[in-house]
Amino acid sequence: MITLSLVGIGSGNPDHLTREAIKTLESADVILLPRKGAEKSDLADLRRMIAAEILSTAPKIIEFDYPVRDANTPKYLDGVNTWHDALAGIWQTLLMDHVEAEGRAALMVWGDPSLYDSTLRIAGRLIARGMQLLVKVVPGITSLQLLTAAHGIPLNTLGSPILITTGRNLREFGWPEQTDSVAVMLDGECSFSSLDPTDIHIWWGAYVGMPQQTLISGPLGEVGDKIIQTRTQARTESGWIMDIYILRKIDQ
């Protein structure tokens, strides 16, 4: 039985690591470290820095190249499932080749493994394939927490729920019913621009928690174009971008 710990490491600031996260990484025999191409080398560099400078032990580091999801697959979920199968195959090979029986492996996960992240689903594929694997989760600070903290706002209004969704869902289905607040993740197309901006306020952030953190907030009709321009420029300069935002209907 191999133990695989999925360790949330926050959103780009080493200070986000909890004591539990550090202890788990230090006790690992092997740390799997994904490389997501030259454009996102900053993400791999942060993980390397954590392993080299923060941990008091020296687990073996096994780097691997992340496969790219085929965005041209007609059905979105078919493309995602194929992508996850490929990742599961890579993980299984690495764990079998580099981790002893009863050994401990760890994988550093951006943010938290439970919030719009697929590491738990991929680990589940390994178990479904018959691999003797014990999966543990170490929670991490999420970009959603960092966004609300950076803007100094509560996540929801009094007595009202908030929906956490994706840009794709916002474009396809519009504003969800029975809520006045929507948190949007995984949006590469500024999907807020598909909405009627009347009485909607936005709190947007890119690279939240990192040195290049950028924040914009205000009435959607007034700041929407500024967000689009800022996002485009930041992505061009960095080669990649991670952003998140909250939309809230505010009665005038």
Rank of each mutant, 00 (worst) to 15 (best):
R168V: 09
L94S: 11
H84Q: 15
L94F: 12
R19F: 09
W240N: 03
D97I: 07
Y207F: 15
I227L: 06
S217R: 10
S56F: 04
L6N: 03
D65A: 14
D187T: 11
M242Y: 04
Q132P: 12
S194P: 02
W240P: 04
L115M: 14
M96S: 15
M49L: 11
A44N: 08
T142G: 04
M131T: 08
N81V: 06
T24C: 09
F173G: 04
G188Y: 11
L133C: 01
L220S: 01
R129Y: 07
H201C: 06
D45K: 13
L94T: 13
P139W: 04
L17Y: 05
W110M: 04
R35M: 07
Q229R: 14
L133D: 00
G10D: 03
L158F: 14
V99M: 08
S114C: 14
I202E: 00
N169H: 12
F173P: 00
D70Y: 10
P197L: 09
L43G: 03
F173A: 11
G140Y: 00
T232D: 13
I9Y: 07
T18Y: 06
A105E: 06
R48F: 07
D180L: 09
W91L: 15
R235M: 14
R19P: 00
I122K: 05
G239V: 05
V135E: 03
